[in-house]
């Protein structure tokens, strides 16, 4: 397992958030896409919607599973990654880059501090993988 990028922070539910200039990019982790398998569809809020940290943000579907996505941060949705919506395989191929899901204008950037660091997230994933069998 390669280590997760250190330029962002993570949730226990396998989402990530990366803070930029007045906006945060949100996506799902490499571990999440790996576990879910071939992704086929995302159900995400429209720009303008308000989301709350740790509340349900939307859904991701693979061929034979549906999983919920939780918001890593509170704020207003300002953009949805249309390329990833049109080609969900992007999220499988590049979950931390081209396969981001949406941009949020954070209501409180300090919420980032409550999220997991890359190291802590990797440790969580290592335990989860160990518990698989």
């Amino acid at each position: 397992m390669t280590s997760s990028p250190k330029d962002r922070r993570y949730t226990k539910e396998h989402e990530w958030a990366r803070l930029g200039d007045g906006e945060a990019m949100v996506g799902i982790t490499d571990f999440a896409q790996e576990q879910l398998g071939d992704l086929v569809y995302f159900d995400l809020p429209e720009p303008g919607a308000q989301v709350r940290q740790h509340a349900k943000l939307g859904e991701v579907e693979s061929v034979k599973a549906v999983s919920e996505i939780y918001a890593p941060l509170s704020g207003e949705v300002i953009e949805v990654n249309q390329k990833a919506m049109d080609s969900p395989e992007l999220v499988n191929q590049d979950p931390y880059g081209e396969g981001w899901l949406l941009k949020v204008r954070p209501a409180d950037a300090s919420e980032m501090d409550s999220l997991l660091s890359a190291e802590d997230y990797d440790a969580l994933v290592a335990t989860a993988e160990g518990g698989q069998h």
Binding site: V40, Y41, E61, V63, K64, A65, V66
Partner: peptide
């Protein structure tokens, strides 16, 4: 099939 009972 994610709409259907055996998955959702």
């Amino acid at each position: 099939q994610t709409r259907e009972q055996h998955i959702r």
